[in-house]
Amino acid sequence: MARRTRADDRGRRAQRPKDVLHGQRSGHREQDFRCVGCRLVVPLAAPGTAHRNHCPTCLASLHVDGRVPGDRAAACRGRMAPLSVSVRPDGEWLLVHECLSCGELSANRIAGDDNALALMRLALRPLRDPGVPGAAHAVLLGL
């Protein structure tokens, strides 16, 4: 699944420098982690991103970071479920996670091998369940 590269990447924020080097961890979980949702063993190396924090299959994550990504400052360790999809001005998709334990939100860029069907279901969710009254849809279709 090729990530679309855009010519107008000028206004884009540089990727945050990675101060937690996962490869330098010791023990048997050096290069991978096990997903809390589907128990899949996921390699840390991901195409298109250096900050993989969620399972590419079920998109679940774990609440381990505090304010700064990679700081491992959160004591919660709750499961984070995908909540919604957001788009950066340059067209990059972000996955917004919500901690099921404490309600904290976090955003992470999607990786190149994330499950496209799961992402699509998430992106279509607002349109499938019209939470705004149905009349609003009719009004907007008339615009």
Binding site: S86, G91, A116, M120, L127
Partner: peptide, 22 residues
């Protein structure tokens, strides 16, 4: 409603993968 709906369809307007495969 216009801004709400615009934000809801924004991911579909800029998909990172071809939607034809679906």
């Amino acid at each position: 409603r216009l801004i709400l709906m615009r934000m809801a369809v924004r991911p579909l307007a800029q998909p990172p993968f071809p939607l034809e495969a679906f």
